[in-house]
Amino acid sequence: MKKPDWLRVKAPQWERVGNVKEVLRDLALNTVCEEASCPNIGECFKAGTATFLIMGPACTRACPYCDIDFEKKPQALDPTEPERLAQAVHRMRLHHVVITSVNRDDLPDGGASQFIKCIAAVRAISPQTTIEVLIPDLCGNWKALELILQAAPEVLNHNTETIPRLYRRVRPQGNYDRTLELLQQTRQIAPGTYTKSGIMVGLGETDAEIRQVMQDLRTVDCDILTIGQYLQPSPKHLQVNEFVHPEKFAAWKAFGEEVGFLQVVSSPLTRSSYHAEQVRELMKRYPRSRG
């Protein structure tokens, strides 16, 4: 399908994004911006931000929408990764950092220990930086989730990705109810932590199904929602069913605010970490006690 004008982005200019890429290469770090072929990489790198991808780049799941490599064998966790990530946060002078990961179903804790070490390393070198972790479902290991939350990230993000009817096709190793439970567990374990989730559209869902997912997320008191257009990374990935018009994204944003989300970021090019730093303003408007 030919992309409409509202999905076209200019290619990034090296002189504007090169500094970020140099830091990443110098510290041997992966980003979801690069590994997942994010269309906003030019804008974010130009602004001096990036979403760090830990424990990768190989993933233990084979989601047919995702461009992250699942064919390589996952490697042992690198004990130097947390410190290298913290150095990047310091060198890039990040006010807000997003740390995500591949799925590591091969690890008993799903990689929770590496998230904890990364949070601690960033806190040590850049204590004013707010931290958002975008985590996998940990195979329902809520003890591992509790340990991550004890490290006190300001934001706990876990993506819903799609509607329940499409889970078997889009996210075959995921579970819709488990995703909702993870967000609910987060609210119960750490009431002061802001919770966040994201969904893709354009895969064959209906407007009513999208609104039902939004209501389900509010049922578990999810604070922040991102909605973006699915884009096919390559011919071997799931095909786009529809390019959704920006007016519909605006309508979903309005509906989300109506049902009680503190923030809804909804546009064709929105991704989980798009303008994630805006949460700092949200935290000022809706402060929470972190115990």
Rank of each mutant, 00 (worst) to 15 (best):
D105V: 06
L85G: 07
K72A: 13
G48F: 06
H96N: 03
V9E: 14
R16G: 15
L138A: 06
G56Q: 00
R104H: 13
D69S: 02
E43T: 12
F70L: 03
A112F: 00
G111C: 12
G56I: 05
T130L: 07
E81S: 01
V89R: 09
R91H: 06
T130K: 07
I131Q: 02
G42T: 01
V133Q: 00
D69G: 06
E71M: 07
G48Y: 09
F45Q: 00
T129G: 04
P57V: 09
T100G: 04
W14Y: 13
C63T: 12
K10M: 15
P57E: 00
L24Q: 06
N30C: 11
L27V: 05
T60R: 10
F45K: 04
I116V: 12
C66I: 02
C118H: 02
P127G: 09
H95P: 04
K21Q: 14
R25P: 00
A11Y: 14
K21A: 11
W6N: 14
S37Y: 02
G42H: 03
E43I: 12
Y65C: 02
T49E: 03
E43C: 05
C33A: 08
M92Q: 13
T51C: 13
E83D: 13
T60A: 07
L138Y: 02
A112H: 02
L27Q: 07
A76L: 14
E15Y: 15
D78I: 02
V98G: 03
L53P: 09
C63W: 02
A62C: 01
R91Y: 05
L24V: 11
P39S: 10
G48K: 03
V133H: 02
K117E: 13
A11C: 08
Q13R: 15
M55P: 11
T100K: 08
R91I: 05
D106T: 04
A88T: 10
D109Q: 03
M92E: 09
G18P: 03
P136Y: 03
G110P: 10
C33M: 08
K73Y: 05
L85H: 03
K117L: 10
R84M: 01
E43K: 10
V133R: 08
C44Y: 04
G110S: 02
K10D: 15
I41F: 03
A50M: 06
K73M: 05
E22D: 14
L94K: 14
L24K: 05
A28C: 07
K46S: 15
R84H: 08
P108W: 01
G140Y: 08
F70E: 08
D5R: 10
E35L: 09
W14D: 13
D106Q: 08
C44S: 09
W6G: 04
E83N: 15
C139Y: 00
H90S: 13
A47N: 13
F52G: 10
T129I: 06
